[in-house]
Each structure stands twice: as C-alpha cells, then as structure tokens.
Amino acid sequence: MTTFKRSKTARLIMMAPAAGMILAGCGEKPVEVQVFNTPDECAAYYNPPAECKAAFEQAKALHPQVAPRYSSKTECEADFGSGQCETAPVLAANTSEQPQQQSQQSSGFFMPMMMGFMAGQMLNRGGMTANPAQQTASASRNPVPSQPLYKSRDDRTTFRTATNTAVATQPGPASIRPSAVQPKPAMLARRGGFGAQAASRNTSSYGG
C-alpha cells in the first residue's frame, strides 16, 4: 500500500450548501421535557433520582443568571407575590467554582424565587430510553437546557420560564418548542472590547 502525502479525503459539510446541511428554523418539532416542583417529585415519576438531582442542580445554577431582575423588592413582589422574591447575587467570573461566595454578595437587585424546574429530555424515564435515532440529530445540540421555573402572583398553578413563557400547569411531561424556552441571561454584557486594533489598521486580513 502506497503512503500518500496528502489527505485521504477533504470534504466540506457546512461551507458547501449542496451537501444539504441546512439548519432550518422553521418546521421546528416540539420536544418532550418534564416539569417538577422538586427533585423528589421528579423521582416519584419513575425518573432516576441521580438524573433528577443533576437536572435540578443545573436549573438552580442557571437561576441567578436568568431570573428577571428588579431594582426594588416591591416591584418584584408586584409580579411574583409577597414573600416570593430574594436578593440577586453578583455573578463572579468563575461561578461554577465559587457558588458560596457568589450568593453572599448582593448586586442590589431582586429576583423571584425558583418555584420548580424543567428537565431537558435527558431523563431516562422509568428505564425507557428515548428513541436513540431521534436523539442524535437534534439532541446533540441539547436544544432544551434544564432550567429554573417561576410562578407569577396572579397565577400560582402555571410554571413559567424566566422569560415568562408558560410551559405547564401541572408536574410531569410537557411538550414544548425548543426555541421558546432558550434561557437568556438577565444581565447586560459590555461589548466591543476586542477589535479596535483591526479598525485602526484597516487591512483585509488579521491573520497572516
């Protein structure tokens, strides 16, 4: 067998549109998620307790990042009810490593308490594995992250996402469109901190 000095194949899947790899936004298929008040309730629905706990922890970690923020407790309680709001922490750079420190430092803002969580379709429900073929194409992008849910002051039964999308009125499975429940951070980022040198030098490429 001759050894070649060149690549065996050189194909493109994204740059060449003919290859048919088009990520369309329309015709989006709903996916099944599960909604619970607590991890224990999740386990009671024949879900593996460890996965329930993991989904809950993921939602809890997301909670301070995505919960709507209010400048006063009164404004927050007007939307979520008396005694249903807490102070919002400052988010440190490495939130995953210092959750303790993070929650102690107040940002001066208020946010609703987390009232439940949505588990993405990672749960292996009652030992019944979801159709693996269905998993690969869409689920490899993990379209629905596990996330915190909230309940508004005037509707204590409906679970809502941080962006106020109603997802269920009772615990258990729910069918949702992934694009409707993508968590969005509540904080505003500074932007434009890179690229100034490019703008001042004005060449066609910044590689070489």
Partner: peptide, 25 residues
C-alpha cells in the same frame, strides 16, 4: 467585536460564558 464581558467572563451574544474560543485575531 460582538464578544461580551460580564464580571470578567467573556460571554456570547446571549450572555452565556464562552468557555472555549478560537480567535483569528
């Protein structure tokens, strides 16, 4: 130019942490 920053962390357009970045710059 659209990379964002929140509390010392680089973030994407939706404000999520950028944990891995190839930068042609």
């Amino acid at each position: 130019e659209q990379l964002g920053e929140i509390d010392g962390q680089l973030v994407d357009l939706d404000g999520f942490a950028v944990q891995g970045l190839f930068k042609l710059y």
